[in-house]
Design a protein around this nucleic acid. Structure first.
Lengths: 144, 144
DNA sequence: CAAATAAAAGACATTCTTGTCTTTTATTTG
DNA sequence: CAAATAAAAGACAAGAATGTCTTTTATTTG
């Protein structure tokens, strides 16, 4: 569904939302620990997201990554688009470049519904909406 | 969603169903042309499906791949399971190995619905059900 | 300003996916 | 049986995804 890179990206962003609530900043190491991912790898992914303006960062002592109130309202779909591109939202299920309403692949219609559901889910989920449940240990981000 | 390998597999199988209706057999070259895929690559994928008994093959002159009436009723889900494994049907959306009802990732519930829809679609679609519409040029298998 | 800190950037390594090519084995047909 | 045919098998190569390590740049703080 998502690339590993994208899975890390979503988890990292949710973690940053969780830990940067009161103007705090989170370092790469803390993020890597918090979501159980390779630190240098997640660093690169976050650099990409910083360039796209999806998350903010500050260098130097007491620096790190953070999200403002507006950033916390960013839908998961945006992260997926930055990291994995548009394929999931618009691609053909069977990989036909020219699949369309007038030139449909066998699963075109059925797959369209699925794609729409996935899109709706990702557009309507916000990075910051999990913070409370994570604090209450009703949700988890670590893989082990 | 699916690996490229799996996309080829599904298209190849649908093509075989289309071209092996009256006991005919289809060669690799014809399949490769029919779905616009690398011949040797699709050959390997089909070997795997033959070993799993999802499709039949015969060597030698007038040989090739074919599906009997029962084989044409095989759901797409079976092909996906053979080629891509179980990940799509049961894996966590964010890659957490231990994601579950009691230890859910942030998108666990929403993703579960999507997975169930995908599963239902793949379990309820049969390899042979597209034959007629393909013959009428209402559906297509080639990518260009 | 100097030292410490932390992200940014870039080089490099590994693994998996995708794709190609050659050889072998089984089957059919004359 | 001999020749032709076509799948099976295996070696190999290219490319992408994933992961690691080192160096550079920007910022803060004393």
């Amino acid at each position: 569904m998502f690339s590993k890179t994208c899975e890390y990206a979503i988890r990292a962003m949710i973690f940053i939302a969780l830990r940067s609530k009161d103007g705090d900043r989170v370092g790469i190491r803390e993020i890597a620990k918090g979501i159980d991912s390779p630190a240098h790898f997640i660093a690169k992914i976050l650099q990409q997201l910083v360039r796209k303006g999806v998350v903010q960062s500050v260098k130097g002592p007491n620096g790190g990554f953070y999200l403002d109130a507006q950033g916390r309202e960013c839908p998961l779909a945006k992260i997926v688009r930055v990291v994995d591109g548009d394929q999931l939202f618009s691609g053909c299920g069977l990989g036909l470049r020219n699949c369309s309403e007038v030139h449909p692949c066998p699963i075109h219609d059925e797959f369209k519904k699925i794609r729409e559901d996935i899109t709706a889910m990702l557009e309507n989920s916000y990075i910051g909406e999990f913070t409370e449940r994570l604090e209450e240990n009703l949700l988890f981000l670590r893989r082990k």
